[in-house]
Design a protein around this nucleic acid. Structure first.
Lengths: 175, 175
DNA sequence: TATTGTTATACTCTATAACTATA
DNA sequence: TATAGTTATAGAGTATAACAATA
């Protein structure tokens, strides 16, 4: 069956008001002869695009050290807070505890962390990095810094600091 | 079976180096006595958090006008570019054409848009909003503006403009 | 009763690849 | 051969709810 034909979904058109199809193959959404309307001024829209782009750019630099995205955050939090519990990890990363369980299980199976039960509260488990985890964290942190410098070279030192300040304000003060 | 017990995954601990579990129930990740290490300076980390927070805050304001997230972008692009083709929508929104198909199908079934085949290139379909789509777009745009003003009241007019400029720089210039 | 953590499950968003039809 | 669009499918990432163990 031909695409869409014979259904009630579409009609035919001769040629009225239609915007010409864009044949531009550039990678930025803005390299288009397209009107973005209100999206143009929308912080959320740009946050999403910038997040996509930044993450993709970062991930490309990782090479063989690929680690599931959320796991880098977890690993870093564990390195910086030895013995952190899962509920604290959950709050610090802004994810549900069931999501944390999954990531920690993955990292434990990969030999990057170990978990030990707390005697003072036997419901809780403390997480620590292993040697391998510490080494991976080290390498990833280097890559993060390199990536960070690429960002700085694009938007400038001052504006990067400003960006961080503004984002933190948003995160902390949105109701 | 008791959580984690009897497996080789975890060990027990008496009490060494462990960070105390945080009992803070505030919603910001930063309301924690947690060290964030390099994450503290990471643009990507903050973009993700700000994106989550901003979207959640926006979605809460929608009430009965809930529309799948990606669809608002599509709808706005169609309103502002009557007759836009799917491949152009795909590029402008930064999503694969197969993702666009799904969203457009959804909006067509919901009576928000209609698609018409182009006679000058019968592979292409032009998208237009219906009356219902135009009205929904109108209401959503109002909510977007209200949301935008909430953001402005948090970070200030000048810094919001600055934020948009910096994000656009990132989006356009990241390799 | 409340909390930590696990599990099962399901939902959203997205891309890849194979396909049809058109160019 | 190349492009527009569809479909099937799979894989992240995430949350909800029910549960066991513990407080």
């Amino acid at each position: 069956m031909r695409a869409n034909e014979g259904t009630s979904r579409t009609e035919d058109i001769t040629n009225h008001e239609a915007v010409p199809a864009n044949t531009n193959s550039a990678s930025s959404p803005f390299d288009e002869t397209v009107q973005f309307g209100i999206l143009e001024q929308l912080v959320g829209f740009h946050l999403r695009l910038a997040d996509d782009r930044t993450f993709e750019n970062f991930a490309r630099g990782l090479g063989s050290d690929r680690l599931r995205p959320g796991c880098f955050t977890m690993l870093t939090l564990i390195v910086n807070n030895p013995g952190i519990t899962q509920i604290t990890l959950s709050r610090a990363s802004g994810r549900d505890k069931s999501s944390v369980t999954k990531d920690l299980r993955y990292m434990e199976d990969a030999g990057l962390i170990r978990r030990v039960r707390l005697n003072e509260d036997r419901r809780s488990y403390a997480s620590f990095v292993t040697q391998a985890g510490a080494e991976l964290s080290e390498r990833l942190t280097c890559e993060v810094k390199a990536h960070s410098m690429r960002l700085t070279s694009i938007i400038g030192e001052d504006r990067k600091a400003l960006l961080l300040t503004i984002l933190k304000d948003l995160i902390n003060n949105l109701p």
